[in-house]
Design a protein around this nucleic acid. Sequence first.
DNA 1: ATTTATGCTAAACGATGTTCATTTTATAAA
DNA 2: TTTATAAAATGAACATCGTTTAGCATAAAT
Lengths: 203, 203
Amino acid sequence: MGTIERKEREKHEMREMILSAAKNLFIQEGFDHVTIRRIAEVIEYSPATVYLYFADKDTILCALQEVGFRELYKRQQILVAIKNPAEKLRACGKIYIDFAMENQELYDLMFIMRAPMKAFESLADWNVGRDTYEVLQSIITDCIAQGYIKSPSPQIVCFSMWALMHGVVSIFIRDRAPMISKDQQSSVINGILDFTMTEILDK
Amino acid sequence: MGTIERKEREKHEMREMILSAAKNLFIQEGFDHVTIRRIAEVIEYSPATVYLYFADKDTILCALQEVGFRELYKRQQILVAIKNPAEKLRACGKIYIDFAMENQELYDLMFIMRAPMKAFESLADWNVGRDTYEVLQSIITDCIAQGYIKSPSPQIVCFSMWALMHGVVSIFIRDRAPMISKDQQSSVINGILDFTMTEILDK
DNA sequence: ATTTATGCTAAACGATGTTCATTTTATAAA
DNA sequence: TTTATAAAATGAACATCGTTTAGCATAAAT
């Protein structure tokens, strides 16, 4: 009797329904409107039912992070077509920034908000973030190996690069740049990308 | 009869009491425990009374930002003693990062949290942040004038520098650096400061 | 057909920020 | 000093939120 298989399948489908509802609410109405009650309303179940499939709201947000990281990782895949490591590094930065500015709420969830991180016992369990970081790491390793960067510490170069990209977009996303108007943003971003590359590349 | 003067003084004192209570709660117990009811409890008034002196909670958080910016601005004042612009730039970065890491919750309120910004009608009204930014701007202008930096655009250099510093500390503060353990943080920060300076300075 | 297990939910709990009618207190006028 | 008026403070409530629990309905197993 395949009843237990069906039960598991139904359980999985219900989890997907909840995540899908949460994702749509998130993207269409913004973070503030992602409440357990609204999710329950969308899937046409009671709020309490949601808790039969997810421990708490943070766990749902955590699962929602994965959606974002998959999208970012997908974008990064076009990098394999670029052979020159210096070009590749620039493209990597551009992809990261474009993703952030085009999906601000999702980026916020992935890299700024506290809530989704509470679902992890330890920070070491945050693997989704590490995957996209390793893409950058390997590019920089290549850059150093081929003499485009002369720094002795790939770790420092890598983290600096990430910090700079994250810094720019998070300042914009959290509205901390009064000196730069909305329609200046993209040109400033390009300027920073150019500047970063000319500074970081030694060859 | 100076009763209206006294009334105004008392009103001002009450506002100070509320801010002081909020600040202490904020620093001693963290953001989550800064609630209107807890503030009211500390100052020994009812929660409704708080609303006679501040429009809403965001306005209180906004006023609390100023406390942080005053502290940061105070720290920046030791920079006037440094004559060499390149040295000055490095010290400016160090001060910023040290302030952030030593006052993480306050930094968060100043540069990351959404809530305190809602009190402003327009982003252009956010003057506290601009003041500290201008300190960095003038240092970089000096660096360029004296040939330490060759970039044609001070605006880009300035914003990049800030973005890098903010990126580093906000990644740490919001727990997005699983590849760097807590006790590695300060050495990584120093490494980044060194790297940034060698890259940014052309002389 | 009866028992057992599962899935679901209504209702409530304890928070939160916020508002408003009411009461208490202080000031001004008589 | 007593009274009328203005100001200050509050208790109680509202609308949310995330979350828990006791009980109900349906499906499964005996």
